[in-house]
């Protein structure tokens, strides 16, 4: 493949495959995008993972454990997709724990009650689905294919979250308050998952041209709001936005402006739990170093990998 066939592939909405020629910048942008996505899956195991041992029924425990396992699986798929571009998983992990590569800021918020597990499924996984369904048509083949599986599983995750909240809303008054409190805390951070407003998103235009980003941040955010409002009504919770209302002219919901200074603060490392999230991965990496060395030494003695 050459430069012209690459352009043609993109123009025809076909897939670029790992051995095809591609611009260096396309490769680097994708590695960064896929790695950040993989890191998000891995860091994202923590906020909910903290509740596995404390889940209030065995059924919820099994669902949550399966969900967190899925997230580890998503991380693996995605690191593998990044490796088809020449990246190395060990190196990407190092970048994560040294704070040189980012992950979704949403995971820097704490999970204070079990209702957070439900709200993460409903809103956070819901926002992720809105972001990721278009990526199933990413111009880079391995990423697009990984995203199809991941989105399917995310859909499971979203439904289990919503079903948990529905069940809790049918429980005690204290549980209903717990759900409302969790919605209040997660709504705005969920809206921020779509990134800064379009006017403040410098890399978007090139990524759109390469078809590794399919819709603008604001467009995706609007879709998410439009889908979430009826769900909130069905659930019986209020979304914490005084200006949220249907605009018949636009045929969309109008909604308030997220606090972008907060997003900036969390992205640059000053969110509630940034240090703790990274520290946990750093600790796992350093605690496991002697184990990985043992596996490598054993493999070397016997002439085979794991």
């Amino acid at each position: 493949m050459s430069e012209s066939t690459f352009a043609e592939t993109i123009a025809k909405d076909q897939r670029v495959e790992p051995r095809d020629w591609m611009p260096d910048k396309y490769r680097q942008t994708l590695i960064r995008q896929i790695a950040q996505h993989a890191h998000s899956e891995i860091i994202g195991m923590q906020p909910e993972g903290e509740w596995i041992t404390r889940a209030p029924t065995l059924r919820r425990k099994a669902i949550l454990l399966a969900k967190v396992q899925d997230e580890a699986g998503h991380g693996l798929y995605l690191y593998s997709a990044a490796e088809t571009l020449g990246a190395d998983r060990g190196d990407l992990t190092k970048r994560l724990i040294e704070g040189r590569q980012k992950y979704s800021s949403i995971f820097n918020y704490p999970t204070l009650t079990f209702a957070d597990v439900g709200v993460i499924g409903w809103l956070v996984d819901g926002a992720a689905i809105c972001n990721q369904v278009p990526l199933c048509r990413s111009s880079f083949g391995p990423y697009a294919r990984a995203m199809i599986r991941i989105c399917k599983e995310e859909s499971f995750h979203q439904r289990q979250g919503y079903e948990l909240l529905m069940t809790m809303m049918g429980g005690t008054a204290g549980q209903r308050a717990m759900v409302q409190d969790a919605v209040n805390r997660w709504w705005w951070p969920s809206l921020m998952m779509f990134g800064p407003p379009d006017g403040d998103s410098p890399n978007s235009a090139q990524s759109m041209a390469w078809k590794i980003k399919r819709h603008s941040n604001d467009e995706l955010r609007q879709r998410f709001v439009d889908m979430s409002v009826p769900q909130a009504e069905a659930l019986g919770v209020t979304l914490p936005d005084p200006v949220l209302r249907w605009n018949a002219e636009r045929e969309h919901y109008d909604f308030g402006e997220p606090d972008w200074s907060e997003l900036k603060r969390v992205i640059t490392g000053d969110g509630p739990l940034n240090r703790q999230r990274i520290e946990r991965r750093r600790q796992a990496d350093s605690d496991g170093a002697w184990v990985r060395e043992a596996a490598a030494a054993h493999a070397a003695k016997h002439g085979s990998g794991r």
Partner: peptide, 8 residues
């Protein structure tokens, strides 16, 4: 679950 030596 979030502290093993490798993702696998």
């Amino acid at each position: 679950v979030t502290r093993a030596p490798e993702l696998e």
